[in-house]
């Protein structure tokens, strides 16, 4: 099967899939990491409800990271080893964060009250470690895996930017899933997160222009320049709209609670595609192109059979689970 699919087309298909996985990961694990970062140390009732809101989802959300890193490994092995060897320590810290938060989630439900708070804090700070490490890795990646002081500075900025973005989408999720006081608190978090995120997007956009000459040329030339500049503008329009909504919604008796999350989702999509267009055809910006890194075409054709059959099924049952657990989250009893 797929014998007539050229290597070039395979490269595009797999980089597209990789992009889809990363985007879905950023949105899906983004909101549950964000909820983790927002965990308040003092209010236990909030903590229970917040964690209950992500209970049925987080395992599957994290699987998109496994798929993304797996696709990078399978389709672009050179990029995978270059990327992960340069970012060895941040990747290690991210993994430790993921380990800690993942197990804390399960341990907290099964231990005595005193220890529960400790696991909650492990959950919070594990999530924070993960988001900071991911943002830092994103930053270094965008610079083309540079490690000089400017790149480090940019990466730190990205670390905070990504954390703010996750916290923002996390609070939008809580608006959607939470009720009463928790929801009020989520509105407050979303309003604050919105501001930080807006500043972050401006800073990253400007820094992005100074990093690579090719990218700057692309942004400053027609026709892609228009598209690319339209994106931050659209982002800001959406964020402004969201700001208005966040003020109005608490009085709207539950109507339109899904809107902030939907807007957050669109903002993620816009930012992500802006990155994608800026750096294509590079898999590592300025260093390695998709075709340089592509592995053997016949192996990729073999895997493509599975991709074509299975990915739609995965998307379908993921949608089914979101439908099953739609509406306000319930207390997280293992029934």
């Amino acid at each position: 099967m797929f014998e007539n699919v050229s290597a070039e087309m395979l490269g595009n298909i797999y980089v597209g899939l990789l992009g889809l996985s990363v985007l879905l990961y950023a949105i899906l694990d983004g909101y549950d990491l964000g909820v983790g970062v927002l965990i308040p140390p003092r209010t236990e009732a909030f903590r229970d409800d917040m964690i209950a809101s992500i209970g049925p989802y987080w395992d599957a959300n994290e699987t998109w990271l496994v798929l993304a890193i797996g696709l990078l490994l399978i389709a672009f092995p050179e990029a995978h080893s270059e990327f992960l060897q340069t970012l060895y320590l941040p990747a290690t810290f991210m993994l430790l964060g993921l380990i800690l938060r993942g197990v804390a989630f399960d341990f907290r439900a099964k231990v005595v009250q005193v220890k529960k708070r400790k696991w909650d804090m492990v959950f919070k700070y594990g999530s924070l470690l993960t988001t900071l490490a991911q943002g830092y890795m994103l930053g270094i990646y965008v610079t083309g895996l540079r490690t000089d002081i400017w790149a480090q500075g940019f990466a730190l900025l990205a670390a905070f930017g990504v954390t703010a973005a996750y916290a923002f989408i996390g609070s939008c999720w809580l608006i959607l899933k939470g009720e009463g006081e928790l929801q009020q608190k989520a509105y407050y978090w979303a309003r604050r997160g919105l501001g930080i995120l807006a500043v972050g997007i401006i800073a990253v956009s400007i820094a992005n222009l100074t990093l690579h000459d090719d990218v700057r040329d692309l942004w400053l030339s027609a026709p892609w320049g228009y598209v690319l500049f339209a994106k931050p503008v659209a982002c800001f329009a959406l964020l402004a709209l969201c700001g208005v909504l966040l003020k109005k919604l608490p009085e709207a008796q539950g109507k339109g609670e899904w809107l902030p999350f939907f807007i957050a989702l669109l903002v993620f999509l816009l930012c992500f595609t802006a990155f994608g267009i800026s750096y294509y055809p590079f898999i590592i910006p300025g260093q390695m192109t998709v075709m340089d890194a592509l592995s053997d075409a016949s192996s990729l054709r073999f895997l493509l059979v599975g991709v074509v059959i299975v990915v739609p099924i995965i998307l379908a049952y993921t949608a089914m689970v979101y439908k099953i657990f739609s509406g306000k989250s319930e207390k997280l009893s293992y029934y």
Partner: peptide, 10 residues
């Protein structure tokens, strides 16, 4: 690669 890929997907 493909064997790992199939594991993740299926």
């Amino acid at each position: 690669g493909p064997l790992l890929g199939y594991e993740v997907l299926t």
